[in-house]
Structures are given as structure tokens and as C-alpha cells.
């Protein structure tokens, strides 16, 4: 495990997901305005470029015909088949046995550092 200098803090805008090559892997860096996330840019389903999908919210568990919106800004949706991933832990919301790799992120000297 080592820290990789990914990108400067000002280079990832709020709500944006910047896709970079880090340590030989394609990684999406996402900034929600408070925190940075690093997510492997490969969907575990059919290896689509996951981080080209949108980050949004989803419907929370509910009673039949009840709709509760939540997790806004915490759900990454694959552009291919619509699989939803929780950006906090990488787990697929529709089937948690699938998971996309997420990495620890830290800020050092105004640089976004990814642990991998």
C-alpha cells in the first residue's frame, strides 16, 4: 500500500468526477463539497467505465407504493445497466455481494492523495 499523488485540490469541482490513471489503474475522484472519494472506474458487472455514470440519490427501503428519496450525492449509477453503488463503501445497492473497489483519500499540501 502506498500513497499516490493524484491531482490538485482545486482541479476537481464539486459534483464532478475526474477520471485519472493512478498506479496503473483507472480511478474516479469525486468531490461532494466536503469530502473526496476515490472509486475504481470499473463496474464489477460487465467492466463498464463506472465513473462515467452519474452521482445521485436513490429510493430508500419503503412500504409498497411509498417513495422516499435519500442518499443524495452518495450513489454512483453505472451508465450501462444502471447498477447503483454506495460511494462510501462501494457496495452495490441492488445486490451487496457485488462491490466496486474504493480507496482511502487524504489531502496533503493541497494535493489529493489516494492510498492504494
Amino acid at each position: 500500500m502506498m500513497k499516490h499523488d493524484a491531482v490538485g485540490v482545486g482541479e476537481v469541482e464539486i459534483g464532478d468526477c475526474k477520471i485519472l490513471k493512478i498506479g496503473g489503474r483507472s480511478i474516479g475522484i469525486y468531490y461532494d463539497g466536503e469530502k473526496y472519494f476515490a472509486i475504481r472506474n470499473v463496474c464489477p458487472h460487465e467492466q463498464a467505465e463506472l465513473c462515467k455514470g452519474k452521482i445521485t440519490g436513490t429510493t430508500l427501503p419503503s412500504k409498497p407504493h411509498e417513495y422516499i428519496y435519500g442518499m443524495d450525492g452518495e450513489v454512483l449509477v453505472c451508465p450501462w445497466h444502471g447498477w447503483e453503488f454506495n460511494i462510501n463503501d462501494g457496495k452495490c445497492i441492488g445486490d451487496p455481494k457485488y462491490k466496486v473497489k474504493t480507496y482511502e483519500v487524504s489531502i496533503e499540501n493541497n494535493r489529493i492523495m489516494v492510498q492504494m
Binding site: H45, T58, T59, L60, P61, S62, K63, P64, H65, E66, Y67, I68, C78, H81, G82, W83, E84, C92, I93, G94, D95, Y98
Partner: peptide
């Protein structure tokens, strides 16, 4: 399809 479209049927708690 549930894996990708679950958000339309959030009341389903299992496959």
C-alpha cells in the same frame, strides 16, 4: 434487472 432497477421498487426487500 433488480440489480439495476431496484430504485423503482424500493419496497422489495429481497431478490
Amino acid at each position: 434487472n433488480f440489480k439495476g432497477m431496484r430504485n423503482e421498487v424500493p419496497w422489495l426487500k429481497k431478490k
